[in-house]
Simulated scan of single mutants.
Amino acid sequence: MTSSRQRGLSLISTLIVGAFFAFALLIVFRTVPAVNEYMAIQRILKIVAEEGDNGASVSEMRRSFDRRGQIDDVSTVTGVDLAISKQAGKTLIQVEYGRKVPVAGNVSLLIDFQASSAPN
Rank of each mutant, 00 (worst) to 15 (best):
A40R: 10
F65I: 03
F20Y: 08
I44Y: 09
V74T: 06
D73P: 00
T78R: 14
D66K: 06
S108E: 13
V101G: 02
A83S: 06
I16K: 03
D112S: 11
T76W: 03
Y38R: 12
V95S: 10
T76G: 07
I84R: 00
E50D: 14
R99D: 14
S59F: 10
I12G: 09
S75I: 06
R68I: 01
T31P: 06
V80N: 12
S85V: 08
V74H: 10
E96R: 10
E51W: 03
A22H: 13
I41C: 10
F113H: 00
F21C: 12
N36H: 10
Q87D: 04
D81Q: 05
E50L: 14
A34R: 10
S116K: 05
S59M: 11
V48N: 00
G105D: 01
A83Q: 11
A19Q: 03
A104C: 07
A22C: 11
P102W: 08
T14Q: 13
I84L: 13
I93C: 04
S13M: 13
G8M: 12
S3E: 12
Q94N: 15
V107H: 12
D53A: 11
V103A: 13
I44V: 15
P119T: 04
S4H: 11
A40V: 01
L45N: 01
L45R: 00
R43M: 04
L109I: 05
S10A: 08
T14E: 08
V95W: 02
A56K: 11
L11F: 14
R62W: 12
A49W: 00
T76M: 09
K90L: 10
V28M: 11
T76N: 14
T91R: 04
S4M: 07
A56G: 12
D72H: 09
N120G: 06
A56M: 11
S13I: 05
G98S: 15
A56N: 08
D112M: 05
E96G: 15
I16W: 03
A34M: 13
S116W: 01
T91C: 10
I84W: 00
L92P: 02
R7S: 13
Q70Y: 13
D73I: 08
G52I: 02
V95R: 02
L82V: 00
L9I: 05
A115I: 01
